[in-house]
Design a protein around this nucleic acid. Structure first.
Lengths: 235, 235
DNA sequence: CAGTGGTCTAGACCACATA
DNA sequence: ATGTGGTCTAGACCACTGG
């Protein structure tokens, strides 16, 4: 673990342990430099990381202050997308389908493969604290995600890909829509046809930019309360 | 303008002018250092900025590559929220109401003011390329935003706040829901009652963390196609 | 104008990707 | 093994805030 990550982690721990309120001032840079035996740049880098996460805000010439989320019960939406953060809640999944097949046109384009290449297709319903959260269909490029089974799909597929298969997950592109539930979708989510839905398509890439997963997710609007922190207004 | 911002701007210009494809490799760091007469750290900082914007991705030990958006016609959703980016399209606004009043309970809490303090209330419909984009209600803390009129509200209120009033806009907290349109909302947006909507509440803060604007925005789902780029998967 | 955060540099050294 | 990106440092200097 890098030094600036270490420092960021420590600071984060201090903030939550001491239950610092919004607006609380952190120690000045020089103090932090001494405390963590690090150079100014390194400390600033650590703090910028926290700023990116939405935990602090910096005011030039004044100080570094704690930032807090006002409302509770919202799913945090970060630069990693939702899924990276859902680990905090009790998320479970039920696998509905899992097989090897040929991709749809859209999946093939998104994954940058031919229509006759194999993909793992996974259809799951995910639950948050016992309620249906979303219906998910995913297409994994089989030449990258070489094996999948029911047990893996019931837990975190991404953990498996990075830990067991040793792939490094990189960036992703998300496309969001709002629309009405089809009959089939409504049944899976325990809702009524025509009720609203949040529909998110995501293309996940490896570290080296190769797409390995194309997913189409329909969210239960009753559980879909998202929180998003923006940082800085420039231009 | 800072040196690393300058470099980032130049690089961005080069990417778009040369129409570089996804995966194109940028010159190596040493070249860029020479080209812009800057130190390694400064160049890296510039590139990190571009990475944050979703324009490039970096692969350690390999290079820096161009990243491109696959689908067209989506509104980009960045760390600045939507509005920061909407400038590219033809956005217009029609003011429906504009007056000084007392805040609602929710607005008072969000703005951190008392129920008997004054706010500017603005209700607008915004259009994108002639179509209704959203219905927006905003509450501005009058002790900060001391004056507003119809003309300002027809254009960009935020430009006015930062340029004419000299305030520095800082971070914001956004809360997203999906739900169904009420009859009134549907009328403003030219849709039917019960159709889906994306509903976003945002608290905007100044540089010094003081909230100055609480807004409630209902989006026309037909125009609400958002694009979001995530960077990096850690933890 | 004092206090504090932020930029920028040169250079040592490290970590990863690719062949 | 080599090329390439990234961390880290010490210190000079700059920019903003607030009394």
């Amino acid at each position: 673990m890098l030094k600036y990550e270490e420092i960021a982690k420590e600071l984060e721990k201090n903030i939550s342990q001491n239950e610092l309120e919004q607006g609380s001032k952190l120690p000045v840079l020089e103090t932090l430099m001494g405390q963590y035996q690090a150079s100014k740049s390194t400390v600033i880098k650590a703090i910028s990381l926290l700023e990116k996460k939405g935990l602090v805000y910096q005011v030039r010439g004044s100080g570094i202050f704690v930032r807090k989320q006002k409302r509770k019960g919202y799913i945090r939406f970060t630069n990693q997308g939702f899924s990276g953060e859902l680990r905090d809640d009790k998320i479970t999944a039920k696998v509905i389908e899992l097989d090897i097949r040929k991709p749809t046109q859209e999946a093939a384009e998104s994954l940058n493969i031919d229509l006759d290449e194999d993909v793992y297709y996974v259809k799951r319903v995910r639950y948050i604290n016992g309620q249906t959260l979303c219906l998910e269909e995913s297409y994994y490029n089989k030449s990258i995600v070489t094996y999948l089974n029911n047990e893996i799909a019931t837990n975190s597929i991404f953990d498996y890909i990075s830990e067991a298969l040793g792939h490094k997950i990189g960036f992703s592109d998300m496309y969001l829509h709002v629309n009405s539930l089809t009959k089939v979708e409504a049944e899976y989510l325990g809702l009524q046809e025509g009720e609203p839905k949040l529909f998110v398509e995501t293309i996940f890439h490896l570290n080296n930019a190769q797409p390995f997963d194309f997913s189409r997710v329909t969210y239960n609007y009753q559980q879909s309360q998202f929180f998003f922190q923006s940082t800085g207004y420039s231009m």
